[in-house]
Structures are given as structure tokens and as C-alpha cells.
Design a binder for these strands. Sequence first.
DNA 1: TATTGTTATACTCTATAACTATA
DNA 2: TATAGTTATAGAGTATAACAATA
Lengths: 140, 140
Amino acid sequence: MDREERLTEALVRTTFHVTAVMTRIAAEHDLSLTQVRVLGIVSDRRVRVTDLAARTGLDKSTMSGLVDRAVARGLLRRERSPHDGRVVEVVATEAGARLVAEIRAAGMRELAPMVDAVPPAERVGLARLLDTALAAVGQG
Amino acid sequence: MDREERLTEALVRTTFHVTAVMTRIAAEHDLSLTQVRVLGIVSDRRVRVTDLAARTGLDKSTMSGLVDRAVARGLLRRERSPHDGRVVEVVATEAGARLVAEIRAAGMRELAPMVDAVPPAERVGLARLLDTALAAVGQG
DNA sequence: TATTGTTATACTCTATAACTATA
DNA sequence: TATAGTTATAGAGTATAACAATA
């Protein structure tokens, strides 16, 4: 296995672990990981259903259902755009914003054991490398 | 945001990107990411249903259904253990093994743009840091 | 005509509870 | 009694196709 493959495999294994941790945190709050992603995107701005679908890579009909369930739980609100009668903007309720903050804090806390294993002096460098890699694929 | 938080966020964003890429590859082969994980685990050894469930963090009943569908597609095979009549061992068929290899290659190929953004000299160091972090949480 | 969003439908993923078979 | 696995059930996630409303 060459260096490129070795790094790719490390990335994939890291992904599985981080996903497992986040999925568990989501479940502890009675949410799926997808719901957490949607809440996270909406937490600090109003977003159209279509944009939410694009950002998550899901179909707009799927997003419609996700928003339905989050609305039913009082975490999100739908608002019609005054500028374009077709558009629905999705907004986090207070309860939704509070929940996002909680989950974000839990994520920081529960991923800490992994992050803390990286020598402090190298943390900035590692974050920068990951940011560089993400920027290269348009996720920066 | 301190250094620890910044690194955590980079990890989470990396996770979302890698997951998106792998989910797309899985879908192109008419599989879910979960199915790919199961096939990957079984690809080079026989594994009990209970162990598969433990490894993936899923319930054994969920695993039973996943194996059902993979068997129906000719990707996996169930074999009763000769040593313990309760145990079912799951084995990859030839077609299943071929598919795993294909998907693994596609993963390497499609994650390459991200990996290639890391300067070659730093790739080993990055892989080592990730491995260290994973080892610290028992995923090494 | 094109775009935005929802609904109808069908399948997969998932867990819980109840069950069968074996140890 | 305990363990391995399946089945029944119910709900969430997902995409495709068809639809209504608006531009």
C-alpha cells in the first residue's frame, strides 16, 4: 500500500469513527444524523428547502419530509418568502437552536478523546491540512 | 474558537465529505453505505451475525435483514457453523468479493482529489496523526 | 415553460419485542 | 437459563414520479 492509499484509509477509518460518535449523540437526543445536519445548517440563517437539499445531497422530497418531522417536534418553522410565492424558507425555532448548541457541545466533548491524542503542537497543523484538503474539493 | 475546537470541526467537516463521496459510490453500485460496510468486513473472513452487528453498532435483527438482502443479490452466503448449531457465519460470494474490490478502488480514486491536496511530504505524517488519534479511542 | 415545494408510493434502514433452536 | 439468530412490527430515511402553485 503506498502513501496515498494509506492516507485514504486513515481518512475513511476516521470518518467511520466520527460518524459513530455523532450518530450516538444524535440518538441520545432522539434525532438521526441527517436531522442534526439539517438543524446545523439552519441554526444561524434561513434556508430554502431546495438549498437544504442541495447542501445535504438529498432529494427535495426527502428534505420536505425531514422538515415535516422537525416542524412537528417544534424544532423548525416554515415561512413563505414574501418575494417569491413558491419559496419556503426554513428557520430554527428557539428550541431548535438550543438543541443544536447542546449537540454541538456534546460533539466537542465526545470527540475530545480523539483530538487530545494529537500532540497540542500539531493540532493547528493537522486542522490546516484537513482544511486544505477540503478546500481542494470545494468543501472549504 | 480554540485549537481543539478548530481541529474537531475540521474532523467533522472531513467526515461529512468522505461520507458523501462513499455514499455516492455505494449508490452507483446500488448499495447503501451500510451494505458496503458489511461487505467490507466480510470480504476476507467469515463473520457471525452477532459479530457483524457489534462491529457496525447495529442490532442483530437489523443485521439479519441486511444479510437477507445481500444474500438475495448473490453477494453473501449464510453457512451454519458445524461447531455450534446456533451460529450462522456470513461469507462473501465471489460476486460479493469482486464488488468490494471495485468499490474499494473507486473509493481510492474518488478520494484522491482530496488526498492529493496534501503535500506529498506531509501525507505520511497526517496518516500517522490520524492513526494515533484512532488508536487512542480504540479504533486502531 | 421552468421552478419550488409537496404528495403518493415503494423500498431500505433501524430498533424493540417476541419467537425458535441450540447450548 | 443463556445465547444466536429470525420474524413481526412500526417508524424514519430515501428516491422517483406526479402534482399544484407560482414565476
